[in-house]
């Protein structure tokens, strides 16, 4: 479990240019949860997640991981990094090893995993992201952007962290690869009981995969709850520069045209049902059009 207690992080603390990146955050993330974080660029999402594995230290407040205050003096912060894996935005920009094997093995070796066990963990990680085993001797730089992304994700997954944080993992990936990857993370969450934290700009992804969503704006948590409930607040979301799923917008347009359409339609299946419900109503001779 990860817990934030009154966390504020201030850039350039004690200078004229100081600015709070996140302000007074209180947050509890439960084991086995699939949590989404949404918000405009600059709203504090990345700063927030960088506190979850001790990459950033709060200016004020405490962060607890499994009940342990991770910045307590005697505590070894590196322990947190193996428990909570963070996949950065565009992780492929930060690869550095000569071959794929060493790239994925890097974290495992640092974590003191025996060489004899490393290979099987690497194979498992490659299967997870859907890459073939015969790439291990190639340079990570020989691959396309999408494949590099998968290699970078495999190097975090290989550590089998209890919590994995993904900062816009599907940005720039083709729709097929995005879908595949998210389904794998849902599996990791459901079947292995691991916690998944997803930072995303895709509202369709959030509705489909997350149990809970938090909405960040100007460094604060402005809303939190079930995605299906949060997305009914279209106007507030728009004001924060956020979007809602495309299909919902069509039904909101229908409402404007006078039809009593539901305002919580997020999937094609729901849209279909709602269309035929409206059709049955109009069959009865009712007219909704002004």
């Amino acid at each position: 479990m990860i817990q934030f207690h009154n966390v504020t992080y201030t850039y350039n603390f004690n200078t004229d240019t100081c600015k709070d990146a996140i302000k007074n955050i209180n947050l509890k993330i439960l084991p086995g949860e699939f949590l989404a974080i949404i918000g405009q660029t600059g709203s504090g999402k990345s700063t927030l997640v960088e506190h979850m594995n001790g990459l950033k230290k709060p200016t004020v407040g405490e962060v607890f991981v499994s009940g342990q205050d991770i910045w307590q003096k005697k505590f070894d912060i590196t322990k947190v990094r193996f428990k909570v894996g963070l996949v950065f935005q565009y992780p492929e920009h930060q690869m550095f090893e000569q071959d794929v094997f060493s790239e994925i093995a890097f974290g495992l070796r640092n974590n003191g995993i025996a060489e004899t066990k490393i290979e099987s963990l690497i194979f498992e990680a490659l299967d997870f992201v859907g890459l073939p085993h015969d790439i291990l001797n190639s340079s990570p730089f020989d691959f396309s952007g999408g494949q590099k992304r998968k290699i970078a994700i495999a190097s975090t997954i290989a550590m089998q962290p209890d919590v994995i944080i993904l900062d816009e993992p599907t940005a720039g990936l083709d729709p097929y690869s995005s879908e595949l990857l998210l389904k794998k993370f849902k599996d990791y969450n459901k079947n292995k009981g691991k916690t998944v934290i997803l930072v995303s700009h895709s509202m369709e992804e959030v509705v489909r995969f997350a149990d809970r969503v938090i909405v960040m704006h100007n460094g604060e948590i402005k809303m939190e709850g079930e995605p299906r409930k949060i997305f009914t607040k279209v106007e507030e979301l728009n004001e924060m520069g956020l979007d809602v799923p495309q299909i919902l917008k069509v039904f909101l347009e229908l409402r404007k045209l006078g039809f009593p359409a539901r305002a919580d339609i997020y999937t094609v299946e729901e849209a279909k049902q709602e269309f035929f419900r409206l059709k049955n109503l109009t069959k009865g001779g009712k007219s909704f059009v002004k």
Binding site: V250, F251, E253, L254, K256, L257, F259, F275, L278, K279, T282, K283, G285, S287, F288, V289
Partner: peptide, 13 residues
């Protein structure tokens, strides 16, 4: 798209 749906729904009137 909404207009098209509305037309299909109205067709039933």
């Amino acid at each position: 798209c909404a207009d098209e749906l509305a037309a299909a729904l109205k067709g039933n009137k």
